[in-house]
Design a binder for these strands. Structure first.
Lengths: 198, 198
DNA sequence: GGCCTATGTTGACAGCGGCAAGATCGAAGA
DNA sequence: TCTTCGATCTTGCCGCTGTCAACATAGGCC
């Protein structure tokens, strides 16, 4: 992990970190691979050896994004009680947390076609996120796994969480995005609770 | 409206039309101003005289997008009965219709920061969309206009419609996006009905 | 010790958005 | 009717981008 040598040591990791900063700074739409390389202190063509092209880098970044996304939901669940229905609501709060804290990453995952979603690692990461929510809803509703009833309920909960996260992080729902902290949490919980759970 | 003359006649309109095609073809992220100009059969610098820069063009396009968006909701409402609650559900269906039929335009409006949302025309178009839904929910719930109760309910309905539209148009909710026609409508309605209206 | 491959660099290319300077046209006023 | 003037459109340039090919370096394996 030498700092100044010709070979970097862990350039792949360094590029991913730089890309996260670039993404937060510039957003998905203005993302520049050359700027990422500059941030990492490396020539503009170096990333190609690790990610192929810009799509490769964004695909890897999206896979990491899904992990952070799940972690954000899990963090709220850990803070909440063990009641299954509370867990669903907590996950919804975490969903919105993630959209607000890492908006660009959220958009990369949910509103961009730059990543390659056929990529196995990315597909797996996405499936893990779906599985996470699905399991929560299954517990809260008592629906059998893979039952039509469950998928229908998951769709409703997911859509509500996602809609809130997207609208609030974009500033489209000013009635909520103008709030902060506990007040915002309360407003989001109110909306989440409007979705029938049982 | 001469076709082959040096001066186009209505290049502004022609550019907007070409931009709609470009948007549908390439998506927001790969949108190219020069390609729009080529589509319109005009030099690459011509659009600048009508829209300033690419942001200007996309801003104008987004404003038109909002009108189409409202029209899509209205179309479903017209097909539905006059019951206020049915109207809300119909608008939700129209919301999803729009996201599926004009995905790129939907993304331009809801998940892009390329347009300038400070632009008065665009801000007005966006406010009109909010007002449209808000009025529907007010009628369906009997809440007073501008009451906190109403804004809270609007948030819930809006989020559900938006979440469904976004997830389905992105193919994230395969359980719904794999359906078509009446089957899909039914699945969406089921999810929409899970949001409490009264 | 000597090669070999992974990992870097440099330089080129076309396409992009934006700007400046020139060409063309339509219309308004002398 | 003629002329001038401003709006509209073109051409050409700039720096930026992503990608590719050719070359440099270094660490590991025989």
């Amino acid at each position: 992990m030498k700092a100044e040598s010709y070979h970097h040591g862990d350039l792949r990791r360094a590029l991913l970190d730089a890309a996260l900063v670039e993404l937060a700074d510039q957003g998905v739409e203005a993302f520049s691979l050359r700027r990422v390389a500059r941030r990492a202190g490396v020539s503009h063509a170096a990333p190609a050896h690790h990610f192929g092209d810009v799509q490769g880098l964004l695909t890897a970044l999206a896979a990491e994004g899904y992990q952070r996304f799940i972690a954000a939901m899990q963090a709220r669940q850990d803070a909440a009680g063990s009641d299954p229905q509370e867990a669903v609501l907590a996950a919804g709060l975490g969903y919105v947390d993630f959209a607000l804290a890492e908006t660009a990453l959220f958009r990369l995952i949910h509103a961009s076609n730059k990543p390659d979603y056929e990529d196995p690692a990315l597909a797996a990461a996405g499936a893990a996120a779906y599985g996470h929510i699905s399991a929560l809803v299954a517990e809260a509703t008592g629906c059998a796994l893979c039952s039509p009833e469950l998928t229908s309920r998951v769709a409703a909960i997911w859509a509500q969480s996602h809609g809130l996260a997207d609208l609030v992080s974009n500033g489209r729902l000013t009635s909520i995005s103008s709030l902060t902290g506990a007040e915002r949490d309360r407003a989001i919980l109110t909306a989440l609770r409007r979705v029938l759970l049982d």
